[in-house]
Design a protein around this nucleic acid. Structure first.
Lengths: 147, 147
DNA sequence: ACAACTGTAACTAAAATTATTATAGTAATG
DNA sequence: CATTACTATAATAATTTTAGTTACAGTTGT
């Protein structure tokens, strides 16, 4: 199964915060750009807040980034929205038969291999910063300006 | 969300086929090592068969590997059991607002970044072969022999 | 005080995974 | 050649996760 779209929505939110840095956006406004419900936005914004990536003020619109987007990596965002789920990208079947040689040792063998693949992915996410994403978005905007 | 345990079960099955190469194992026997239902084993075995990794004979027990396990990578197995799902490891939210600069361009930006991370993971899976997994299993067996 | 928000909890709906039941078909064996 | 043991697969159910929605309490600024 795929990784949930929370990461994509979170990146979308952070990009909006950067691009519209001056203005105070409501969760309703952000939701209309993402095309989802405002509660979903607030839920994810809450995770970004808890992870220390944004600052929010209860009751008042307009979240803000806590640091320059060049210092926010996709790994930061991924961990913010996936929480504990980050630890195990690959699921391992539970309780294989300990009476069987393979059943007894498969879990350990899988864990060591899986962690290699997972680390490779995380390292790549860490290399990508939010400002690269924003640049991509703005670059496309120059090619086809309509703002 | 995490990647389904089908990959883990498939690896378990292939390891069993290698370790017990001489004998003809029934799906019931394999299921008891994995600790699941025999139908689950046959379903996954069917995927491995369709992907050309094993040969099965309808009605008769005992699947066999089509090539040496040193030539089966975890990426082969991953693709066999995840099928189309492999294409998009990360989900992207649908229909962001085209009237918004960010909404208009976010999907393209995400796709290019995500494919970097996904490729990094797949490259790592490709580097790991089934015989490394089997060696891990047998190595543990030497340390704590009970067979 | 009021209006406009945010922060959450609770509930619903939809999708995916795994387990299970059931059925049809293949093949080796006595 | 009928019986037995097994595979292949469809259909169903149970469980889990995600995303959308409703509801409401709390905060802020006017």
């Amino acid at each position: 199964m795929a990784i949930s779209s929370r990461l994509s929505v979170a990146i979308h939110i952070l990009a909006l915060l950067e691009v519209n840095k001056g203005t105070r956006m409501t969760s309703e406004f952000i939701a209309s750009s993402v095309n989802t419900n405002a509660v979903v936005v607030r839920r994810i914004m809450g995770m970004l807040n808890k992870a220390g990536l944004v600052t929010t003020n209860p009751g008042v619109a307009g979240a803000s980034l806590t640091r320059p987007i060049s210092q926010i990596t996709l790994l930061d965002v991924y961990r913010a929205v996936e929480g504990e789920g980050c630890d195990h990208l690959f699921s391992i079947h539970e309780k294989p038969n300990p009476k069987c040689l393979v059943g007894r040792n498969i879990q350990g063998a899988l864990e060591s291999k899986y962690s290699q693949a997972q680390s490779a992915m995380e390292n790549e996410l860490q290399k990508i910063t939010m400002d690269q994403v924003v640049m991509d978005i703005l670059k496309d905007a120059q090619a086809a300006p309509s703002n």
